[in-house]
């Protein structure tokens, strides 16, 4: 075994001279046209980044179970706020859809006849801000009452019909100023007993949803923090496992940036992988929820459908996952890299 190498060493002095000749031109390459060197360095830099990127992915695939577990934990941490966000977002859309059906109901005073009520409806329809009116006569009101309540038989006991006539107004526009303008006008009319819209409870619902949204944002922030900690801690263990590599790299002149690079890419992959897993989880959750959710909405006579994440939402999720992974590894690396120095 040792014979061959020794022969090589003996021949080394002779070989030294031509070798030097081949090396020198590359070292004095700086004298070449100025543009050439940066271009070459740039290409090398890009190539090294791609190599490190692929290399760090390879490193993760060497321990598939551990890597998958870490990515899954990140995925769950990302999927949780994403699905909550999705639900709140759907609720918001739903409420705004309801709002767009906004009608104004005018209940006439009991002494207003159906005829008078129809005259009022015609007057109101002449207004520019009223799109249409629909008259519900006293008889129709009674019929509706019997149809929609269990108290139909009670109505039979009454000799008179106690229900007033009503007018349903649809405003031309649904902006609050227009609706308020109509309300202000009709409430002044002596024949009108009560004018109401479904706006109040929609506003209340809206407020609750806004509160939920804020709450979801707090959870998103907390879990983002959690993801960076998960990645940071995983990277810390990874750094510990590559102690020797870090020391050797530093000994032969590797900068902090060079040593940091593979760990940053590992964080990047964890984040991206976690993002994808989160997408799968959210997808599954929506798939399972869609039917019961739509059933519930069906009961409310709404045709609204639970929507999936949009393409841009998916991109935001993946980007935030990647970014969080990167930030987490950056924090982990910065904190622990300084501790590892050759001695």
């Amino acid at each position: 075994m040792s014979n061959r190498p020794r022969a090589g060493v003996r021949s080394a002095p002779k070989k030294a001279a031509p070798r030097r000749n081949t090396t020198k031109p590359t070292r004095s390459g700086r004298n070449k046209p100025l543009l050439k060197v940066p271009r070459e360095r740039m290409d090398t830099w890009v190539l090294r980044h791609i190599q490190v990127m692929a290399g760090s992915l390879g490193r993760l695939f060497k321990q598939p179970v551990a890597s998958l577990l870490t990515a899954t934990v990140i995925g769950i941490a990302l999927a949780l706020p994403t699905s909550m966000y999705l639900l709140v977002d759907n609720a918001r859309d739903l409420v705004s859809e309801w709002q767009s059906q906004g009608e104004i109901w005018l209940y006439m005073k009991p002494n207003v006849s159906d005829l008078r009520a129809s005259q009022i409806a015609a007057e109101l329809e002449a207004r520019g801000d009223v799109a249409s009116t629909r008259l519900i006569t006293r008889e129709q009101a009674k019929a509706l009452f019997i149809e929609h309540s269990n108290l139909g038989s009670a109505m039979d006991l009454l000799s008179d019909n106690p229900l007033p006539a009503a007018i349903v107004l649809t405003p031309t526009e649904l902006n609050p100023a227009v609706v308020d303008g109509i309300l202000w006008h009709v409430r002044e009319m002596p024949q009108v007993d009560l004018a109401k819209t479904d706006r109040e409870w929609i506003e209340r619902l809206q407020a609750i949803i806004d509160l939920a949204r804020t709450f979801v944002w707090i959870i998103i922030l907390a879990l983002c923090f959690g993801v960076t900690i998960i990645v940071g801690n995983t990277i810390r263990l990874d750094i510990e496992n590559h102690r020797q590599e870090i020391i050797v790299t530093k000994l032969v002149g590797g900068t902090d940036g060079f040593v940091r690079r593979p760990f940053l890419y590992i964080g990047y992959w964890y984040g991206l992988g976690g993002g994808f897993i989160a997408l799968i989880f959210v997808g599954l959750a929506v798939a399972f929820l869609q039917k019961p959710f739509n059933n519930v909405l069906g009961l409310f006579e709404s045709s609204y459908q639970l929507s999936w994440l949009s393409i841009s939402d998916c991109l935001v999720l993946l980007t935030s996952g990647t970014l969080l992974g990167w930030i987490g590894s950056w924090i982990g690396v910065s904190k622990h890299l300084r501790d590892i120095e050759p001695t």
Binding site: R4, P5, G8, V9, A16, R19, T23, T26
Partner: peptide
């Protein structure tokens, strides 16, 4: 540029 330098260094220490 790396490859020829590395191989030359290996040869120099007799580990070609």
């Amino acid at each position: 540029k790396i490859s020829p330098l590395v191989l030359a260094a290996l040869e120099k220490v007799g580990l070609e």
